[in-house]
Amino acid sequence: MANHSTTQTAHVQHHFVDGDQQFDTAKLGMWVFLVNEILFFGGLFMAYIVYRAWYPELFTEAALELNTFWGAVNTIVLIGSSLTVAMAIRSAQKNQTKGLKINLLITIGLAIVFMVIKGFEYSHKFHLGIFPGQFYSYEGLQHAQAPIFFSIYYMMTGIHALHVIIGIGLMMWIYVRARRGEFGSDYYTPVEMTGLYWHLVDLIWIFLFPLLYLIE
């Protein structure tokens, strides 16, 4: 813990010149992590691209098993949560702790709505026997590579959903710290970083939605 008497502000660690430098360093580190995430999802998109190039008719047929309406609703929900996270950061920048807490709670709520819809989509597919890989037992779509499409589908949306769950945890942590009054215009780095992470989760979904749900 930094000492109030020797440093300018309590949160600036001794190896940084000032709060700005610490903030920019944290942000650079966060971007390096986000770039890693993009390349990590890039591998999954690569698998998608290769299989779609090989079996275009399979992707057209299999997309009919996905519900465009709920996919679109989830897109709207995630964009809405990106807006509230941006508003939460704005509140922190303007020293409005109440606005910060309210926006974080709305974001957590929207993230839970996303997961509930995703859960209904998954359970509907499990009910039909649409499982990934060798566990696939759905009669309605007979294609030798159909299990592979759904392996890609579950892997992409599943890892994305895992990111949403981690995001919910992070925002609860930020909420608890906001309640303790730790954030304000001079220090809101964790809010900003969690926000960047959450926007990336939104960014990935922006590509997943048209690629998986909107193939005609």
Partner: peptide
């Protein structure tokens, strides 16, 4: 193309 425009909006103005 629409997804790329959306991604640009998020990256440029939300992030």
């Amino acid at each position: 193309s629409i997804a790329l425009v959306k991604a640009f909006l998020v990256a440029a103005f939300f992030m």
